[in-house]
Design a protein around this nucleic acid. Structure first.
Lengths: 222, 222
DNA sequence: GTTCGCATACCCCCCTTGGGGTAATCGACG
DNA sequence: CGTCGATTACCCCAAGGGGGGTATGCGAAC
């Protein structure tokens, strides 16, 4: 077990009582030091450069700039700072917006003091602390939609068709695709007609979108 | 604190010694029962229907069908079964393939017996147990690429333009978009012209693709 | 050995699309 | 009050795209 490195923690929380409570919890961890309790995103952004905490506990619902936007700004300028969201929001949008903004952890406010201290240690040692409920949602975001293909049409595009579709997705016109593949425009058109039939679409844009989606969610064999 | 429900656990692991070890760990948890240790994906798929475990500990590297494909098949037919991958693989592809296949947890084989028991409880109570390193990778998958826009062209699409672009992305033709928004086709064309100019593209497909990309990585204001 | 899928190519027809205008309305911002 | 952006609408025109054919060569499958 590696020895715990000292950790400077900052807290961004507009509710003064809650902020004080968080500070006490942080300071009850022997390796942690609270370098600031800031009550707004704007305040935090002004002071964070000077205090350089290792970890920030960030509320989402702040007056003025949200904790999510604040996280994005912090991570942009000081990407090594680990941000843990501490919030009551359980909804999909907030969670993923926070993660996109660069948060490394996401705790619900019902978390216990011990959870919080564990989370700070976890994030310091390369983890991503999340409340169980949040972790499940994050993992589920990767799950395949259990799509029941109504008609079992296994869409099998030929190599050439796939190639053309890929170029189509770059926004190329038929003529450009033809030039790129060194074939006739007419041939490109034929391939596309087949593709439209196979994908059940009627336009290049629709085909491009469908193809794009299928690439992002490769399906496992049944 | 809700009382722990009894949990039936199955293990899929081709290494007999490791399988036995996992079984012992599972059985050392008072609320857990090991209903099977199966040495191949094929074997597991045959028997899982009869044994109906609540949780499956799944190795990835199995002879024949991989644990990832097995997970996909299990989740397809018995979506309520929680699968925890237990493996040495730390690479991006394996992790995300497993999550896409429907795994709810991902533990590295260096995990302690206590970690494993915690993971089983966690997954049973709606969590998504992951080794710290894995959790971080999963969370990082959501982080914004810190892209430096080469030319600072802040593309600001109007509300209407965005609306039209969204319908465009569904593969609709101008006429269909016009009908949907109850405006003239000509107006749709005008909006699209502006969009093309703003996005620096020359066709609907190109615009759709660019828009798609930008939606997947919404940028926070700097 | 014929059939089938794939890739190639060309034909016609007609609607859609993209690029160029002009212009009215409306609200916001100086 | 004038101007600007957003939204609406119309015009022309040339090129592109989608749907319907037909046809040839080739390899694989039956």
């Amino acid at each position: 077990m590696p020895k715990e490195p000292a950790t400077d923690v900052a807290i961004v929380e507009d509710n003064a009582a809650l902020g004080a409570s968080l500070r006490k919890i942080v300071e009850s961890a022997p390796e942690c030091r609270c370098v600031g309790v800031w009550t707004s995103a704007e305040d935090a952004l002004k002071k964070i450069d000077a205090f350089r905490p290792h970890v920030v506990l960030m509320d989402i619902n702040l007056p003025g700039m949200s904790g999510i936007e604040a996280t994005a700004r912090v991570k942009q300028h000081l990407p090594d700072i680990q941000v843990i969201m501490v919030t009551v929001y359980r909804d999909h949008d907030k969670i993923f917006a926070a993660l996109k903004a660069g948060a490394s952890g996401y705790l619900l406010k019902r978390s216990t003091p011990a959870d919080l201290r564990d989370a700070i240690r976890d994030v310091r040692s390369g983890g991503a602390p999340m409340s169980a409920e949040i972790a499940r949602r994050v993992v589920e975001a990767f799950h395949q939609p259990v799509k029941a293909e109504p008609s079992g049409d296994e869409v099998k595009l030929s190599k050439r068709e796939t190639e053309i579709l890929e170029l189509l997705c770059e926004g190329l016109a038929n003529k450009e695709i033809a030039d790129r593949l060194d074939i006739s425009v007419e041939t490109v058109r034929v391939h596309l007609k087949h593709v439209y039939e196979k994908l059940h679409v009627r336009s290049r844009t629709e085909a491009a979108m469908k193809f794009r989606d299928s690439k992002e969610e490769p399906r496992y064999p049944l």
